[in-house]
Nucleic acid binder design. Structure first.
Lengths: 340, 340
DNA sequence: TTGTACGCGTTATCAA
DNA sequence: TTGATAACGCGTACAA
């Protein structure tokens, strides 16, 4: 509401009081329908509200109430990932659903540049939100620091922040990767490789570690293709590299379903059949898994559940409860379909 | 900031003033680095700020300044579309980039239920945003009504709102559909069908109208498969229906790239070659187009550009400029690749 | 150069 | 049941 030529000033409680011939206190009572207001006063005030077109200024209310009834949801991803990763959307929706139930407004803030980082940090310290959910914080993130400094109730989703004292909700990527790899080996595959993505992040590094654990003595570093993102295009490239390195390959663990979808494409172009020649497994159980041909065997990541639990954690902290130490880990069932 | 057991009260300007032994006015001047403050006072105050851990309360500042330096970005989509539609992400990023440049905070609000609608409406009228960008408003949307009532600077993206007096930025779906269909016909196809999605929305209806226009006397209503969403799964179903209705089909216009990707899958399962037996064209030029086999010929939708222009329109209105009557239409080049 | 006092739009606490 | 009046945290004329 900049001082704006065309637009008229918004009516305030004061205007309503004048119009109805009562005091501001009484108007306030009607608005928050509190008791102790006469029927006639109520009627007069409601009419006045209508006439002057009054809508309450929540920002002013928050100032005096010392709370905003809003929780921030911060997304901090590179372009490609933000657009490609179906998990983020589900996490978002899950968190929104839980906050909505508690009558909290979720405000989603995107960090896509250096400028954004500073501005969002200011926003968080500005008193606009009572708490915050963070998806994919970076190492040494200014956002993480400001959250700590403010003591803002928070929940990190996906993986724990640097300082393990901050609450988080996630999955055990290492165990999950171990489990699906073991399952793949149980089908009798002998030369199994991995397309490993996002090794600069916990999730990526942990999935590789789980894969390595499961293979044990069978592990061959030459059978690991490293690619930057959890993306389809990276899956294509990774699979080509793997096939070049080892034509006899008969199994692949892709770091995500999008990567697995890319791998299937590369296998098709190389004339390999799936699961006949090569067994393929992914990670996420996202929409990708069901649109692959053949349907993808994968690890189910409870994305909406992560969002919900993160929101519930923040709400609990707002009620004064202590957050779980060590974070919350959700279980990740294996979904076995046709690709292995 | 609920009255919270563990968390200490946040320091205010008052605290800093006390600590530094000056008045609040001087502290305020230092914070907004205005002139007329002595070097010694500045130093003392900066030290005091550090000691008491002061961070400005932007919410309070906004109340007195009568502006929030924030613009809302409202997404109102059904689950499936929100997760599947790559355009939304690009629009979001485009808008964020433009707002960020002007030092405005973009706050994204998700509407996913009836509760959400009311809460978001309250949020908009609460003085938290100076303007708003809306993606896919519905007919008779309470959000649209509240925006009008408040006279909140706004920009609708994708298609015009019910009341054409509100500013919008979009593309000409009808002309674009006409152009790509004509191009498809120019390759010599004679039995051309369409998979039409989202006919309850302007974009969907307009694309069908453009298709009909282009076909002229060749148009055959039996060759239109109607599906609810711009989604992959709907493309598969639609294509199957089309093939059942007309085995001799040699061209298809899919209402979106995701739909086209589904159509390609159905064609593959039916043993048809593309573009040999059937030419396929899509709409959007999203990530889908490049991960199809063969690469998709399609209409380029400037999604990021839509977001940018919407943001710029809101910013212009905030400066007191009048919005363009009749909205802004961006051009949509045809991108011809391999699928037709 | 600095301090004072008022206003932003609410809620909350008193007396009346 | 109602009406003053004091907060909430800040910016800003105006006076000193």
């Amino acid at each position: 509401m900049v001082t704006n030529p065309g637009r008229r000033r918004r009516a305030t409680i004061h205007d309503v009081a004048l119009e109805a011939g009562v005091s501001r206190g009484t108007v306030s009572r009607v608005i928050n329908d509190e008791p102790y207001v006469s029927a006639e006063a109520r009627i007069a005030i409601e009419a006045a509200i209508e006439r002057v077109g009054y809508v309450p200024n929540t920002a002013a209310r928050n100032l005096v109430m010392q709370r905003s009834q809003a929780v921030g949801f911060i997304v901090h991803e590179p372009h490609s990932l933000f657009l490609e990763d179906p998990n983020i959307g589900e996490i978002l929706l899950g968190a929104n659903a839980a906050l909505s139930l508690a009558d909290f407004q979720m405000v989603c803030l995107i960090i896509d540049s250096e400028r954004d980082t500073d501005r969002v940090a200011r926003y968080l310290s500005g008193g606009f939100v009572d708490g915050v959910i963070v998806v994919s914080a970076r190492k040494n993130d200014p956002i993480t620091r400001i959250i700590e400094k403010l003591g803002l109730p928070s929940a990190f989703v996906g993986h724990p922040p640097d300082l393990r004292r901050l609450p988080f909700v996630g999955i055990d990527n290492r165990s999950s990767a171990f489990a699906i790899t073991e399952r793949l080996l149980a089908t009798g595959r002998r030369r199994v490789g991995m397309i490993a993505s996002a090794l600069d992040r916990d999730s990526g590094a942990d999935r590789l570690a789980g894969f390595t654990d499961a293979l044990g003595p069978l592990f061959d570093p030459a059978l690991v293709a490293r690619v930057p993102f959890y993306a389809y295009a990276d899956g294509v490239k990774g699979m080509r590299a793997l096939l070049a390195a080892e034509p006899e390959l008969d199994g692949v663990f892709a770091a995500s379903d999008a990567v697995a979808a890319g791998a299937l494409e590369a296998l098709r172009e190389a004339g390999r059949s799936v699961p006949g020649d090569v067994g393929v497994v992914g990670f996420d159980d996202s929409a990708w898994a069901l649109r692959c041909q053949p349907l993808l065997s994968t690890v189910h990541q409870p994305a909406a559940g992560l969002g919900e639990r993160a929101a519930e954690s923040v709400l609990a902290q707002l009620r004064g409860e202590e957050p779980e130490l060590g974070g919350i880990l959700l279980t990740t069932p294996i979904v076995w379909r046709d690709s292995a």
